[in-house]
Design a protein around this nucleic acid. Structure first.
Length: 445
RNA sequence: UCCGCAGUAGCUCAAUGGCAGAGCAUCCGGCUGUUAACCGGAGGGUUGUAGGUUCGAGUCCUACCUGCGGAGCCA
């Protein structure tokens, strides 16, 4: 190959074309689509930063080149040189009048055509599907969400303190873990939460967060579930349930604002109603579990909900959807029955049967996007909880140390990145919000 | 794990129990402004698998496999 990509000083990215109008530039990319009209070719080039239409007049280029370009298949690798021209007729507003081009690789039979495809086919070709406009837009939004998360926490005084992925035991006992063999000596598990370790680092740094992959071996098959997903978990020492709710509402608002600020073009491709995102600003409504249950009972009485919800349980998907649709913002439901929450949750001093936990339900029926709360501080209480939940005391000795040495009220939450991105994008399924989704029946590519 | 739906050309789909078809993709040809371009032509099939009913099954029945949607559980 004769190209020396890094040596070409005239190379620009498609996203930079606006500042090169009238200049000769070199673009390096892949053929997105090709239309022709006799002595005229319209190759659409993508380079990862954008999409631009090129124009090739037969008389402006050598005949062999024209014929070579004419026969190119979708996703052929291509370097073109030409002048940048603003043109109303072109999608994107700019066009390249091609004078030279080099076919880096001519491609035939790219599987993903510009027509419709089914999800199974697209998922089997996920490694190629990522090149499509919609997928590109979604993953750009994901990138911005991740940056917003980090920037928000970093500037708010949090220290990144990552927690282990290989762990000796369950953090929460209830959900299923992926098990693996640790040198034949003992079993290890892939982390399903950094929660417990966060409590240790919070006592060392005050405000901390961990951000990494999380694994849940649940046999659940819905548009909201992945077996491997990314979770960010902030934890604060000397903090209460109210502090966590305040943090959650500032946090989500900052993410939405950042997406609106940086990803207008992508949101347009996704046909996202941005007014819905503009409403994500503090304060969020805060609903006591008891009041949420009342709402569900009223809804059932009016025939708006099929099943009557019983006090004491966790909300099902239809219940969550109903509650969130009563507001035009995310809603925070707090003080759940302790019986349905994790063992380390603090109890409401006024109601011993309630845990100081909060779930943030995203707007538009997108469901639970954040779960968190205040942690129990008493050594005796936690020892009892371990017994009740039949958890192996040994494995939690280090955790109990946190209650022996300087135990203070502390609180935090976890947010699933993919659920957040799904909501920001206004799309149907979490599987599109991670480059290579892992689901119950999907381990490859 | 449970409930429902679907598997037909590379892809998306059609075909009353009676000759397996269309669009896109591919290949050949045409077109100097195309916008998922268009026009003409060509190739392309073990109808998910196994069995059954029938003169005859893509179509009806049974089992299995695969996928999709939902429930439970969760972020």
């Amino acid at each position: 190959m004769s190209t020396q990509p890094t040596a070409d000083k005239s190379h620009v990215y498609i996203s930079e074309l606006a500042s090169h109008v009238g200049q000769e530039v070199t673009l390096r990319g892949w053929l997105y689509n090709l239309r022709s009209s006799g002595k005229l070719l319209f190759p659409q080039l993508r380079d990862g930063t954008g999409l631009v239409q090129c124009v090739v007049f037969k008389k402006n280029v050598p005949e062999e080149l024209f014929d070579a370009l004419k026969g190119l298949g979708q996703e052929s690798a291509l370097v073109v040189r030409g002048s940048v021209r603003a043109d109303e007729r072109a999608p994107g507003g700019f066009e390249i009048d091609v004078t030279q081009a080099e076919v880096v690789q001519s491609v035939e039979g790219y599987p993903i055509t510009p027509k419709e495809h089914g999800t199974e086919f697209l998922m089997d070709h996920r490694h190629l599907w990522l090149r499509s406009r919609r997928q590109h837009a979604i993953l750009k939004v994901r990138h911005t969400v991740v940056r917003a998360v980090r920037d928000f926490l970093d500037t708010d005084g949090f220290t990144l303190c990552d927690t282990p992925i290989l762990t000796p035991a369950a953090c929460e006992g209830t959900t299923t873990l992926f098990e693996l063999d640790y040198f034949g000596e003992e079993k290890a598990y892939l982390s399903q939460s950094g929660q417990l370790y966060n409590e240790a680092t919070a006592a060392a740094f005050g405000k901390v967060y961990c951000f990494g992959p999380t694994f849940r071996a649940e046999r659940s098959k819905t548009r909201r579930h992945l077996t491997e997903f990314w979770m960010v978990e902030p934890e604060m020492a000397y903090a209460t349930l109210d502090d966590v709710m305040n943090l959650a509402e500032r946090f989500l608002s900052a993410i939405a604002a950042r997406v609106l600020d940086e990803r207008q073009e992508e949101l347009k491709i996704l046909e996202r109603d941005t007014e819905k995102l503009e409403r994500i600003v503090p304060p969020f409504p805060r609903v006591h579990y008891d009041d949420a249950v009342k709402m569900l009972h009223d809804a059932h009485a009016k025939g708006e909900l099929e099943n009557r919800f019983e006090w004491g349980g966790d909300f099902g998907a239809p219940d969550e959807t109903y509650i969130s649709k009563q507001f035009d913002k995310p809603v925070m439901v707090h003080r759940y029955p302790a019986a349905v929450k994790a063992f380390y949750m603090a109890r409401d001093p006024e109601r011993d049967d309630l845990a100081l936990g909060v779930d943030v339900l995203a707007s538009e029926g997108y469901g639970e996007v954040i779960g968190g709360g205040e942690r129990a501080t008493s050594l005796e209480f936690l020892e009892e909880q371990l017994r009740i939940h039949e958890l192996p005391r040994e494995a939690f000795e280090w955790y109990l140390d946190l209650r022996r040495y300087g135990s203070v009220p502390h609180a935090g939450f976890g947010m699933g990145i993919e659920r957040c991105v799904t909501w920001m994008c206004g799309i149907e399924h979490v599987r599109e919000t991670i480059p290579f989704p892992r689901m119950l029946y999907r381990l490859r590519p």
